[in-house]
Write a protein that binds this DNA or RNA. Structure first.
Length: 347
RNA sequence: GGUGGGGUUCCCGAGUGGUCAAAGGGAACAGACUGUAAAUCUGUCGGCGGACGCCUUCGGAGGUUCAAAUCCUCCCCCCACCA
């Protein structure tokens, strides 16, 4: 799922998203609440209409902002009081209000309010945080009435402590959500911990409901966790990194702003079918990024998102053909490095 | 022709006897980025060597001094105003 925090996948028009076959995009409750404000979105008839995206949308609850804006908020039992990073005004987010907000926004899949705890954190901290998040999940579920049109997911927390993860998952499953998110990962913990966690949850979470790993990840992460039964991902990396001249390809990461592409007139990936690769050279894209030109960001974003969506499409096909492990094992070492064609040539 | 002001490391620009390989900015180069306070941030940026250091550099050539980007002499070049 491409990330479109404030109601736009940065640098992309809805038509460009359709061109690369994006099926669903993300929005963020906290950011949309602050700007443009829920009144505007309500007046527009919901987020789909407001941004003219008639395909599915998933909204995050603001739980991630509990971590990313940790200097500007206070957690209490009832919820989180944020101080706006825009104008300093105070805003109380409770699990009930967060559901009401998301009812107004109207996303197809919505999230319980949670605390995304930082890493490292003590077991005591994670336990306390988890109790709160579970309480909030229950309160959110009780509040949510529009269940026919909006699927509310519960969010599994528990840090890197597997027993706490288990505890979290089981209690959420008792509440019977239509899907389960895995939160609080890729926040700085070792990769092995992340992998152990999804591998473990793979044995617990129901197989007939979607599992969404929040905020992950690199192409390698995605393939790894698909292998552990995860169905859905979102991540800012393909978009954010693309804008800064670092893109993902089937041959690994390519830092297109690098001097080595100054006079390289090949496409980013000669085999790629995206608009960018069919029409523009590495040298030109590098130039655009260096010039800080809008088109540069658009073209790199198109490519990286196209690649991500193609990658998960291939993963889906490999699963259907019962050859996923082979597929992933072949691809992961390639995707895990920086493209260096000169080096390959020497070898 | 006259008067005044200047020439500093890729560029702009500070520095007016030692603590200067020389502030600051830009460019350039190398990276980081994982439910987006991100068109952001970090590092490098004369050469050689782990560090301590050594060598080359502040328009050019001389000179003064223990010590010069900084002071003196001559020369070259630029800018402004006047004629």
């Amino acid at each position: 799922m491409p990330v479109g925090t404030v109601g736009t996948v940065k640098a992309m028009s809805p038509r460009e998203l359709e061109d690369i076959h994006a099926q669903i995009i993300l929005g963020n409750t906290y950011h949309l609440y602050l700007r443009p404000g829920l009144e505007v979105i309500a007046e527009a008839g919901g987020l789909h209409n407001f941004i003219n995206w008639q395909h599915p949308i998933l909204t995050d609850s603001g739980g991630f902002q509990v971590m990313s804006l940790s200097g500007l908020r206070k957690i209490i039992k009832d919820g989180v009081r944020f101080q706006s990073h825009i104008d300093g005004s105070y805003h109380m987010f409770t699990p009930e209000k967060v559901i009401e907000h998301q009812n107004i926004i109207g996303a197809d899949i919505i999230m319980s309010f949670d605390e995304c705890p930082p890493y490292p954190a003590t077991r005591e901290y994670i336990e306390r945080s988890l109790r709160l998040t579970l309480d909030w999940a229950r309160r959110g579920k009780d509040t949510h009435k529009n269940t026919e049109k909006q699927a509310l997911f519960g969010i599994v927390q528990g840090g890197v402590f597997l027993d706490l993860r288990e505890n979290s998952a089981i209690q959420l499953m008792e509440m019977d959500f239509p899907g389960y998110s895995i939160g609080g990962l890729a926040v700085g913990e070792p990769k092995e911990d992340m992998i152990k966690t999804t591998a473990f949850l793979n044995t617990i979470l129901p197989k007939n409901k979607p599992r969404y790993m929040m905020g992950v990840g690199t192409p390698v992460d995605i393939l790894t966790h698909i292998g552990n039964g995860v169905d859905m991902f979102d991540c800012v990396m393909p978009t954010r990194n693309a804008r800064k001249g670092s893109i993902f390809t089937r041959n690994g990461k390519m830092i297109i702003k690098s001097a080595r592409y100054k006079s390289d007139f090949r496409p980013i990936d000669p085999e790629c079918t995206c608009y960018t690769c069919r029409n523009f050279s590495r040298a030109y894209i590098r130039h655009l990024i260096h010039m800080n030109e809008i088109l540069g960001m658009r073209l790199t974003t198109i490519h990286s998102l196209h690649f991500y969506l193609e990658l998960v499409g291939m993963a889906r096909q490999a699963i259907l053909e019962d050859r996923y492990e082979q597929f992933a094992n072949h691809l992961i070492p390639i995707l895990d490095c920086i493209v260096d064609e000169n080096k390959i040539r020497i070898e």
